[in-house]
């Protein structure tokens, strides 16, 4: 990939949640690049730090307790982490926007949905409030909700419809980057497909780059160009979707695939990954996956393995490969 295609690059990001008694190391030295027009999948277990990365990009981490203690997030040669709050407000919802996990709680229950979409437009585009209203109605239609429902309240919508409204809010100002934080986790499978299709269409139409955060490898296969696998706040494997799906290298990635039911293989048992994620307040030295890894040797437990290039864009953080 050439340099000019990079939209946003995260360099050595470190995020910690600290309380009086302990420090949770949520994101440890993560570097990622999101290319223009592409979808990057961020895959990992609950608690791996996926949402924290997205919120760090938006700078909406709850502070306290969360604190970005190191790294840079570069967009257009500027470090977003250094920007003043009022500059950042002009970027949020406008150039970068976010879709949240739980549509049930992500909309304000006392404001009509149309107004919640209109708010984003009125903030970032120099239009009269009537034009903003009209644009909000168009957005509703675009996500498949009749514009007559502009003045309905969130409780009058189903979960899938609410998620559509949230997507409409996120896409209202044609963002360059969309952070989709498990956008379909809270939805029925049938609705999931609809929402993903719709996101794909809108992405094509608007040319938006997407950071797709998920733990669902099916969604990754369907939507992503590149995949980053994250474990205990660290990128353990990165590559194009083909590289990752055809030749998963890191034992954790293979473990994730082993945890998927496979209809093609008859009678095969699932191979879940043994054990639990390490306690993020007390991460193991060396490879963080070593305690759960069948291939782990003494070497793995000493010193953190570096990311090694395996050809193409495929990189893996494992001493054994």
């Amino acid at each position: 990939m050439s340099e000019k295609d990079v939209l946003l690059s995260i360099e050595n990001l470190v995020v910690e949640y600290s309380s009086d008694s302990e420090t949770v190391h949520a994101v440890n030295d993560v570097s990622l690049q999101i290319n223009k027009g592409q979808t990057l999948g961020l895959v990992g277990e609950t608690g791996a730090g996926k949402t924290t990365i997205a919120k760090a990009i938006m700078r909406i981490l709850p502070d306290p307790p969360a604190r970005v203690t190191g790294g840079k997030i570069i967009m257009d040669d500027e470090d977003l982490l250094e920007l003043k709050e009022d500059r950042m407000q002009k970027i949020r919802g406008n150039r970068i926007s976010m879709i949240f996990q739980d549509p049930m709680t992500a909309l304000n229950p006392t404001i009509v949905v149309g107004k919640q979409i209109m708010e984003a437009i009125a903030l970032h585009e120099k239009v009269s409030s009537r034009e903003a209203c009209k644009k909000a109605e168009e957005m509703l239609e675009k996500v498949g909700i009749p514009k007559e429902r502009y003045s309905d309240y969130p409780h009058q919508f189903s979960g899938g419809m609410k998620q559509r409204v949230i997507i409409a809010i996120a896409l209202a100002c044609n963002p360059e980057l969309l952070l989709a934080d498990e956008p379909t986790t809270a939805l029925d499978v049938t609705i999931q497909a609809q929402v993903l299709d719709m996101m794909n269409e809108l992405k094509q139409e608007l040319g938006t780059s997407v950071l797709m955060i998920t733990h669902d490898l099916g969604i990754v296969a369907e939507t992503c160009d590149c995949v980053a696998v994250i474990y205990a706040g660290e990128i353990v494997e990165y590559g194009t979707a083909e590289e990752i799906f055809d030749h998963p290298l890191h034992p954790y990635t293979t473990g994730l695939f082993g945890s998927l039911p496979n209809m093609a293989k008859e009678g095969g048992r699932l191979k879940p990954i043994d054990g639990m994620m390490p306690d993020p307040t007390d991460l193991p030295e060396g490879c963080k996956f070593a305690p759960r890894c069948h291939y782990a040797t003494e070497k793995c437990r000493q010193g953190r393995p570096e990311l090694r290039n395996m050809g193409g864009s495929h990189v893996v953080r494992c001493t054994q490969r």
Binding site: I60, Q89, A106, E119
Partner: peptide
């Protein structure tokens, strides 16, 4: 203030 929709509003760029 801790509710998700407040985060949504913040993510829109609201002051």
């Amino acid at each position: 203030i801790r509710q998700d929709y407040v985060t949504t509003a913040k993510a829109k760029g609201q002051s």
